[in-house]
């Protein structure tokens, strides 16, 4: 006898995700192939125009800029986060707990609130400039707010834990005996780092990079607050198409493209890890 509760629960989630997940994504894809119309959502004529439009130099420039920002932000998070994760994973357990709590504490508040905090720090008359001026390091206030630099800082500030945590989880399981063995066999510290620690923590690095890279292309509100009127990220482009330009089909096409980029990235990652696993099994 098949239990009724089971039908109920599977039916419930299938309906919910079917409507709000699957159907909404499908509608987005459909809209991206329809003709634009300022008064309605779209006109029911099939067209590739929305995708062809994205090849326009103006949009391509935003794409490249957004990619560039995402690479810088991911690199910045990695450089700042890796040593932190390494040190964290080597601390005694009690200290580790407290350090983790301190790391995550700010991230339980809304990211808008954190971005606003960064905004007031970087202002022309904000704390940073006031401090630097009074210490005599600079003689004129730095114009950081409303520049791409500010957006980069804001993104790193918001995304750093997403880089640290996967690397930390990976390094925590790392067998310290491997380092000792390498050292005993005469490897220098730099060699140990390059040939043992980094390769073994690669899954953590890749995981962290995926978690940082995608949001740093799409978190439009950070660029809105810290970058001023310049739309810097792919997320701003999508936001504008929907809320300002009222060109939903083009906005939908941009989103579809973004999803495809994400899908390709993930597929690559899976293939690589699968190959690695296969190699590993063959080796055993």
């Amino acid at each position: 006898m098949k239990p009724k509760l089971h039908y109920f629960s599977v039916g419930l989630i299938a309906t919910w995700l079917g409507v709000f997940g699957l159907l909404s994504f499908l509608l987005m894809v459909v809209i991206s192939f329809l003709q634009q119309d300022p008064d309605h959502i779209a006109l029911p004529y099939f067209t590739f125009q929305n995708y062809i439009d994205l090849l326009d130099p103006m949009f391509l420039k935003i794409f490249i800029k957004s990619f560039y920002v995402a690479i810088i932000v991911t690199g910045g998070c990695l450089i700042l986060g890796y040593p932190f994760a390494y040190i964290l994973s080597r601390l005694p357990e009690k200290l580790q707990n407290i350090s983790l709590l301190l790391l995550l504490l700010p991230f339980w508040t809304s990211s808008v609130v954190r971005s606003y905090a960064m905004m007031s720090l970087l202002k022309t008359k904000g704390l940073l400039n006031t401090l630097l001026l009074s210490m005599g390091i600079i003689h004129q206030p730095l114009q950081i707010l409303f520049t791409p630099t500010a957006v980069g800082i804001g993104l790193i500030y918001n995304l750093l834990p997403f880089m640290i945590l996967p690397i930390y989880v990976n390094l925590e399981r790392f067998d310290i005996a491997l380092i000792e063995a390498a050292r005993d066999l005469g490897a220098k510290w730099t060699t140990v780092f390059r040939k043992v620690i980094i390769p073994l923590s690669m899954p953590g690095i890749v995981g962290g990079a995926t978690l940082v890279f995608l949001p740093s292309m799409t978190l439009f509100f950070i660029s809105d607050l810290l970058g001023g009127a310049k739309s810097l990220l792919l997320g701003n482009l999508i936001e504008n198409q929907f809320l300002m330009a009222n060109n939903w089909p083009r906005g939908a096409a941009t989103s579809v493209l973004l999803t495809l980029i994400m899908g390709a990235g993930l597929l690559m990652y899976w293939k690589r890890t699968k190959n690695k696993e296969a190699e590993h099994e063959a080796f055993l």
Partner: peptide, 17 residues
């Protein structure tokens, strides 16, 4: 897929729906 899609894409898909 819902966990991995960027928030902005989910937001837009729902807005269209």
């Amino acid at each position: 897929v819902i966990i991995l899609t960027p928030d902005i894409v989910l937001g837009i898909a729902l807005l269209i729906l």
